[in-house]
Design a protein around this nucleic acid. Sequence first.
DNA 1: GCCAACGTTGGC
DNA 2: GCCAACGTTGGC
Length: 161
Amino acid sequence: MAGQQRYWLFKTEPAEFSIADLAAQPGGSGRWDGIRNYQARNNLRDLAAAGDGVLIYHSSCKQPGIAGIAEVCSAPYPDPAQFDPDSPYFDPKSSPDQPRWYSVDICHTRTLPGIISPARLKAIPDLADMVLFRQGRLSIQPVSEKEWNIIVAMEPQRTES
DNA sequence: GCCAACGTTGGC
DNA sequence: GCCAACGTTGGC
């Protein structure tokens, strides 16, 4: 039952849902929904499991980068939004019998005191091969154990401005 | 606002 | 199944 421990990077636009929004949820736990890309879906549905580590990455914003740490705290399950005609994530081609899209719940672990920018990550040789740099658009991407260990140990850096 | 990367769509 | 057109992502 205990599968392999995995690590992930989840991207979010902080204007939509930020690490602070996650921390503010009851119990610091919330649903990661609205994934509408097949590769991201496959990662989530087939590989994600409770206990996996998650780097929360803010994208398309003034200060992009890693903003916090979370943990997967549910098994993957069909994203309810795909069945809701009023949701922007509604998918008329999906059905409860044959759900197309999946969600997991994640639990807030900690919010970093500053954002770790992609430039700073890229400057570290052991991080240069992150999926983030090879396939920047993928919104649910795997992180190696080595990459995870480096990043969670990184000291916060004052945000220059 | 620009532009590169890349996923999706649709005609054939 | 190919591939051009198009739309979206996302850093800068």
